[in-house]
Design a protein around this nucleic acid. Structure first.
Lengths: 228, 228
DNA sequence: CTACTTTTGTGCTCTAAAACATAATTATAG
DNA sequence: CTATAATTATGTTTTAGAGCACAAAAGTAG
């Protein structure tokens, strides 16, 4: 990957910078590849780099009580992640892993902090991004605690379409998740994810072929998601 | 309240500013009083001011499906709130109300935005605050979805002590919540809050006298909260 | 003081979802 | 290719917690 290709991808971080600042950043970043299911960072680790997902798919998750895992959010290209803990001066409270082979660009956080101090537009980018994410987190708390299983699964399916899009047929989700990941995303047990998914298929809301999920009746899915 | 007293209170916003910037802010802020249970803003409202709670207690909450309410976070003096939606360029996704008579200082967000653009320390204050809040939201999501009722209630009681402190006896919570608010804070029905609370009393973890709650065995409460 | 509303407390019932059990199918490794 | 593990599928049981009913207590208003 050339520096040019990369600077295309990391636009939001890159654009606000002066030539000098870009030179500094260009000298310091590294690119790292992760295999399917490889862990990127763990809960309790000390954050050192901001990460930008160049290609692939990444989950941010948290292991809770009794071996259950909650997927907190999912990252798609070209999003930034892994910086919250550093700004809060904490260790990571979540973990991150790659769903699929992923390429990640890493910038040392101390450089980013320096650039933020010099460059107000960059500061504002982070303020906005954090604000958006906090709003999503608040919404999600209520969805996950109050909606019923069907509502939560419908929401998850629609979210996956929104985030990662569909294949050429316009309806097959581009992300292939295991039933377990789908369960961890929508706060239910794996067996309930399997059961509810096949109920949705029986009701002709979706079709399933292994991990391929095709959304057939989005309107009704939306309704199910909404009423909970 | 004199400007001096106020500038004491709103330190985090005030300190980073230059004389000129302080003058601007001093000209523009307003003070507003809210009665017990009065609504401060609603979901769907357009945000215009950042608020700083000078005295009193405020809840940020969200009404979900089927008439259930979730308390998302609680504000104590002297904390800032109500700014997230503006930064994200959204309407409020939550509502806010006063638990008790509260005094709130309001600054127009367009002034704050201007000050942020000029003053990098102020930008960094918001980056840090948002980062901390996002971490709390992530933790909370997992607690609320995975812990059992007893764990969630124990967590809520400990949180209330942490946030609002205790009275002179060193163990009575300074905040007097209705059972319903306690339920909405810990994601359960009112009857389960009542029941679980009186179980805790029977087990000598707490004593209850109306809305006065005294924490007796904090260690065990912590254990109950931890194991879920 | 009396009437009315809201909050708290307790018992009982019901149900959504977890837990468990067991196949069948599909990957993965040796 | 075979053995082993992981994932998916389905049926059954169990249970945590919601829902409902009702009474007592405490606020609030007229």
């Amino acid at each position: 990957m050339t520096l040019n290709e990369i600077s295309e991808s990391i636009a939001e971080l890159w654009h606000p910078l002066s030539e000098e600042q870009r030179a500094l950043l260009a000298k310091e970043f590294t690119i790292q590849r992760f295999r399917k299911n490889e862990i990127i960072y763990c809960e309790g680790d000390r954050p050192t780099h901001i990460m930008c997902l160049l290609s692939g798919k990444v989950k941010i998750y948290k292991d809770g009580v009794g071996g259950r895992t909650q997927i907190i959010r999912m990252i798609k290209p070209v999003e930034y992640f892994a910086y919250r803990a550093y700004f809060a001066n904490e260790e990571y409270v979540t973990a991150a892993a790659a769903f699929e082979p992923s390429v990640i660009c890493m910038f040392p956080m101390n450089i980013i902090t320096k650039l933020i101090a010099e460059n107000n537009q960059l500061a504002q980018f982070f303020i906005k991004q954090l604000s958006i994410d906090l709003g999503i987190a608040d919404e999600r708390t209520v969805s996950l605690t109050q909606k019923h299983i069907r509502g939560r699964l419908a929401e998850a399916l629609l979210f996956l379409k929104e985030s990662y899009g569909v294949e050429e047929d316009e309806s097959t989700l581009s992300i292939y998740l295991s039933r377990e990941d789908l369960a961890n995303l929508s706060n239910m047990t794996t067996s309930n994810a399997i059961r509810t998914l096949s109920n949705f298929a029986t009701e002709k809301l979706i079709t399933i072929d292994g991990r391929k999920i095709k959304l057939i009746d989005e309107d009704r899915l939306r309704k199910i998601s909404k009423i909970g």
